[in-house]
């Protein structure tokens, strides 16, 4: 029942060109997103999960640049003649980030729930004004129609008495309501794909549960695809159906959420899952921690990026060659020489 993906990221590379050198923030990332699927991008700081999300939307700030790979997206509403391929895909990586085509996709087709709830609304305009503005940018509706759509969106995301909130400023709302308003903003134009970049990191755990529930029900009702970016493995387990585990700009493992959490294949995924204290681990015991720290992205180790911290490190192999992502079982893929012996030679 593998249907066609609506987004297929292939060997994406996004580099940052700094004075000190090149940071390969995203270095050969591939995954697919199907309609109605929640794909979780998970990893620690510096793994490139956020940059991947920004690359798809083509909003990477300079000195960062998408330097390679394909971001094949199947537009659901807008028609893009120029890049329209035979199979209905358009390569976002080839579009001009500021161009008309990319702008027509952003918001209307692919929307973003940003990390910083305070910064995503202008403090000098009301929530309603900004919602109407966003709706009229992509839909040919008049002021009154847009207002009705906006109110409908606010109601959908569970904002109580939306008529009042419509005239509120973002700083008048509490954290939870603001987060809901941002979701309403992202949903304003009925996007087919939603990129949620750490949407719950800044909020409390009870509010987080509300927001996660909301996202889950919205996704179910609309059969929307979501790319959910977070560092929190608990959140990923609760919302994602497919998980992409990243480390230092590379995908180390990806697969259905059950497989990732119950039969992880890559040593990093295994170690990461073991090292988190959960409500279910025995209290006051030593956690099997991953040794060492995440290398600075300037100093990506040669070969497998995880090898200096890996317990199964094989000298001569892991530090010389970089493993590639290969299928393990079913839909689960991993990039590790333990699972796929390195090709001889070299």
């Amino acid at each position: 029942m593998q249907e066609q993906p609506i987004l297929s990221v292939r060997d994406l590379r996004t580099y940052f060109f700094l004075d000190e050198g090149i940071v390969r923030a995203v270095d050969g990332v591939s995954f697919e997103v199907r309609a109605g699927e929640v794909v979780g991008l998970v990893g620690e700081s510096g793994c490139g999960k956020s940059v991947t999300g920004k690359s798809i939307l083509r909003i990477v700030e300079p000195p960062g640049r998408v330097v390679g790979g394909e971001i094949l997206y199947r537009p659901q509403k807008v028609s893009i003649q120029k890049a329209q391929q035979a199979n209905g895909f358009v390569d976002l990586a080839k579009l001009d980030p500021m161009g008309r085509e990319m702008r027509s996709i952003r918001g209307a087709e692919i929307a973003l729930i940003p990390q910083e709830p305070m910064a995503s609304f202008s403090p000098v305009h009301t929530i309603g004004f900004q919602l109407v503005e966003a709706i009229r940018l992509h839909q040919a509706v008049d002021e009154e129609e847009a207002r009705l759509i906006a109110l409908e969106r606010l109601r959908e995301v569970g904002v109580p008495s939306p008529e009042q909130r419509f005239h509120a400023y973002s700083w008048e709302l509490s954290g939870g309501l603001r987060q809901r308003a941002i979701i309403a903003m992202a949903l304003a134009c009925n996007p087919a794909l939603l990129i949620a970049d750490e949407p719950t990191t800044a909020i409390d755990v009870t509010t987080q549960a509300q927001v996660l529930n909301l996202l889950r029900s919205l996704q179910r009702e609309r059969r929307m695809a979501i790319i959910f970016i977070t560092h929190d493995l608990g959140v990923i387990a609760q919302v994602a159906s497919y998980v992409v585990v990243m480390y230092l700009g590379c995908v180390v493992e990806r697969g259905p959420v059950e497989d990732i959490f119950h039969s992880p294949q890559h040593p990093y995924t295994q170690a990461l899952l073991r090292s988190i204290p959960s409500l279910r681990t025995p209290p006051r015991s030593f956690l099997p921690a991953i040794e060492g720290s995440i290398p600075h992205p300037f100093n990506r180790p040669p070969g497998c990026p995880f090898h200096p911290r890996c317990r199964s490190f094989m000298p001569g192999t892991c530090d010389r060659q970089q493993p590639t992502l290969q299928p393990v079982q079913g839909l689960q893929w991993a990039s590790c020489f333990l699972l796929h012996p390195a090709p001889q030679g070299r």
Binding site: G292, H296, F298, P308
Partner: peptide, 15 residues
Amino acid sequence: PGGRAAAEEAAVPLP
């Protein structure tokens, strides 16, 4: 696990 030395981390590396 791994004793005291295991806790050792490498310093922030430079390019």
